[in-house]
Nucleic acid binder design. Structure first.
Lengths: 223, 223
DNA sequence: TTCAACCTGACAGCAACCTGAACAGAGCGG
DNA sequence: CCGCTCTGTTCAGGTTGCTGTCAGGTTGAA
């Protein structure tokens, strides 16, 4: 999942970035509205973690711009305790959730996962059935076949999560790379293919279908 | 689909050309107004991707010339963020859409597809019914017979997309070649006939009708 | 009948893709 | 400090599937 953090406090921003990266996401972090605005034009994010009090303006401005431009990206607002009015206004302006500073990093990570699923491209379902008895539980981060659990590494999970975002739709390799590697982490090998190969070894070869020249997609359960 | 790119920035132009070619289109790329003007006299394009800030003048000049000459080609304007006035003027001068630089390539590709369908020769419909239970969904790039999907390669899709542009009308082989092969990519064999043959194998022999000496056309559903 | 246009099976080149293996770094226990 | 495991990345060689070309057959018009 590709996540944008807009947060001007260095320690907090870096801690959030690290925590979400450990969860397997591609995380970009900017400290100003201007930078955020620029990167949002070129990159499609799944979630924006947006602080309201920024040096060059309020995050609410950016939120309004996004919604006016018909962007459906999920937005999670972070705010100090004394800005309740801002928070409420943010929700009415199209934010999906808010969290009060100081917050627990695990709590933030859970909220990020939650908003990513109920907005934008997400399917909204928490449990997705794949072919051959496979069940993907996005909210609990679990994958099981006929009840027995299958362990995935962080990267493997990130790949299948990106594919499951729109089940049945083709997901390009570029898009998968965007979901795994943030700015400055780009990789120049066939890493995606290797993860696909490892996933197939764990899930069975029919689960992930190659669409030559366009990407990959998940097999849907046979009705 | 035949697409003309007018863009003076080498990296961007080449990236756009490559991306649209992967989508199965014939893509010509020129860096100056003069070259674009010359090629537009000899070749019929479906879409022009037009940058406004060019070395030998503004793209708006070319746009005005096109519309004054009653051309109905779809025009997609690309512009830097600080040229809002130019952008608005462009729309009022006959552009079909605009996109702000820097943009996401997937986004551009989607917009190109969109403007190509709502202008000029396009039928405007997103779902086209052919004979024998075949349904062609242009916006989702899907072809299905009675609900089961049929996979097409990039070239096969380009052929049927060109035929579907004016359903029922005869499309000459030259026109099909123009839609598949850009400048410098021309082929000198019966490649088109081969793709028609492959399509018939997948779709059934009655779907594409040969009009001897003039070209091909799609069969319409029996009323 | 003759000729041009068209159809289609076969095949080689090539790029995309797959996968086993090697390697570096982090973390951990002894 | 060493050895072990686990994870992620890179590389190399093999495989697959798309594409363009050709050859030989078929169709249709004059």
């Amino acid at each position: 999942m590709r996540i944008l953090i807009v947060e001007d406090e260095p320690h907090l921003g870096s801690a959030v970035q690290e925590r979400l990266r450990e969860a397997g996401h591609a995380v970009d972090w900017f400290m100003t509205l201007a930078d955020a605005r620029a990167i949002l034009l070129t990159m499609n994010y799944d979630v924006v973690v947006l602080d309201l009090g920024l040096p060059d303006g309020s995050g609410r401005t950016l939120l309004r711009e996004l919604r006016r431009a018909r962007s459906t990206v999920a937005v999670l607002i972070t705010t100090a305790q004394d800005q309740i009015s801002d928070r409420i206004a943010g929700l009415s302006e199209g934010a999906d959730d808010y969290i009060v500073k100081p917050y627990d990093l695990d709590e933030l990570s859970a909220r990020v996962d939650a908003v990513s699923r109920r907005y934008g491209g997400g399917s909204g379902e928490n449990e997705i059935l794949l072919d051959d008895g496979l069940a993907l539980d996005l909210s609990r981060h679990r994958l099981s076949r006929d009840g027995t659990e299958i362990d995935l590494t962080a990267r493997e999970w990130a790949v299948i999560e990106a594919l499951a975002r729109r089940p049945g739709a083709v997901c390009s390799r570029e898009r998968l790379e965007d979901a795994l590697y943030g700015l400055g982490e780009e990789v120049e090998s066939n890493a995606i293919e290797v993860f696909i190969s490892r996933l197939r070894k764990k899930l069975g070869s029919g689960t992930i279908i190659t669409v030559r020249g366009r990407g990959y997609r998940l097999a849907e359960p046979r009705a």
